[in-house]
Amino acid sequence: MDAKKKLTILVIVAVILAITAIVLNIADSEVPTTRSSSDADQSSGGVIGVDIIPGEVEDKLLEETAGQP
């Protein structure tokens, strides 16, 4: 193996190890033990429904004519 190939392998190994070390440092191994609090105001909704229909209409004419022969 010529010197150039050895150098290339050495550089590649160095780069891989450097990236590994950086990643391990960034991805801290500590286990998170807290989570964000969700104490903000909470809301919920309900619905009320009602159907208002027209009332019965009194038929005055029928009442007046009912007693006539």
Partner: peptide
Amino acid sequence: GAKTIGIIAIG
């Protein structure tokens, strides 16, 4: 008519 209203509960 048919009527609805929303009730809002805030904690």
